[in-house]
């Protein structure tokens, strides 16, 4: 098992290496010569070469990459000219927490609503409830989240004036204020996941309920709720965690859109303004953070299987 885990970690590191080379290449592919931009319109060949050497741009690609990677790991991500800050502070300390707060809030929402909906649909298979939640699930997975967000703003914030239209308060500073500002964005982002988790829970639980250990639990005379919620639901944990890990990318790209709808200062807004301002180093930071998060979470998912399913432990 340890051997397998080490193999997984090695694979992950290679993927991370590829991603980092690609996002370093992003800077190289970006239009415009950085030296020319720095020097302005008038410069001598001598000063051009001097600055090139000073910035290490005359080095081979891999040497430049190694230099960049070393600085990146140390938190030296360059300076953003539009936001007028150090990119590490801007991206990692300011934007990322907003995105993570929104993402974890939506995920909690999705699990708390999606799993019970799926369980009830599975237990009441082929009833009106099941059909209704199937239609909702289909609509939920196909409905564009940014439209849903605008509709929610229109209905709950403008018409009913129940929630703030937009803005962000960190739940770490003002817990209830933060939650209050997160409800509409969280609902917007989690709709897709509620739908997906409902579908998945229903499909998996129907299969689980046909297993012999469920029949055995029933034969022992355990109450129906215990059979379903303890013996049944426990066994959907693994597929659920797998799918959630793989869908983390969808969650992150959903936050990009939701942040724009609700004016939350997260990675989404950072990336959009960076693209408009042609700040490739900020785009690079965003790409690296997203990819590292995705790769890291999926490594954790892979490593968590033996803890979720005792059968995987026993076999070794």
């Amino acid at each position: 098992m340890l051997r397998q885990a080490l193999g997984k970690i090695a694979q992950t590191l290679v993927v991370l290496f590829f991603v980092s080379v690609a996002s370093f290449g992003l800077l190289k592919l970006a239009p415009g010569d950085p030296i020319q931009i720095m020097l302005g319109s008038e410069y001598s060949q001598e000063s051009y070469e001097q600055l090139t050497a000073q910035l290490g741009l005359d080095q081979p690609f891999l040497a430049q990459y190694a230099d960049w990677a070393l600085r990146f790991v140390q938190g030296d991500w360059g300076t953003s000219y539009v936001a007028r800050t150090d990119i590490y502070t801007y991206a990692f300390k300011e934007a990322l927490p907003v995105t993570l707060t929104l993402a974890s809030f939506s995920l909690a929402f999705a699990i708390l609503i999606g799993v019970p909906l799926g369980v009830i649909s599975a237990v009441k298979k082929d009833t009106a409830f099941d059909a209704g939640s199937a239609v909702l699930a289909l609509t939920g997975t196909a409905f564009p989240s940014f439209l849903l967000g605008i509709l929610l703003i229109w209905f709950f914030a403008v018409k009913l004036q129940l929630f703030p239209v937009m803005g962000y308060i960190s739940p770490w500073q003002d817990f209830w204020g933060g939650i209050y500002h997160m409800i509409l964005p969280g609902l917007t982002l989690s709709t897709y996941f509620i739908a997906m988790i409902t579908r998945l829970t229903r499909a998996t639980l129907i299969e689980v309920m046909e297993q012999p250990y469920i029949a055995a639990a029933r034969a022992r005379g355990e109450p129906s709720w215990r059979v379903i919620w303890v013996h049944g639901v426990r066994n959907i944990a693994m597929p659920l965690v797998t799918i959630l890990g793989l869908q983390l990318g969808t969650l992150l790209q959903g936050t990009v859109l939701t942040e724009t709808v609700f004016n939350l200062p997260g990675i989404g807004q950072m990336l959009t303004s960076a693209v408009l301002g042609r700040e490739y180093m900020v785009v690079q930071a965003g790409v690296m953070m997203t990819a590292t998060l995705f790769i890291g979470v999926n490594l954790l998912v892979d490593l968590s299987y033996p803890f979720l399913d005792p059968r995987l432990r026993a076999r070794k």
């Binding site: 990318g249 969808t250 790209q253 990009v256 965003g286």
Partner: peptide, 11 residues
């Protein structure tokens, strides 16, 4: 695949 398609498209 480590990057969601929207973020890749943004890049």
């Amino acid at each position: 695949l480590a990057l969601p398609s929207l973020i890749l498209a943004v890049a």
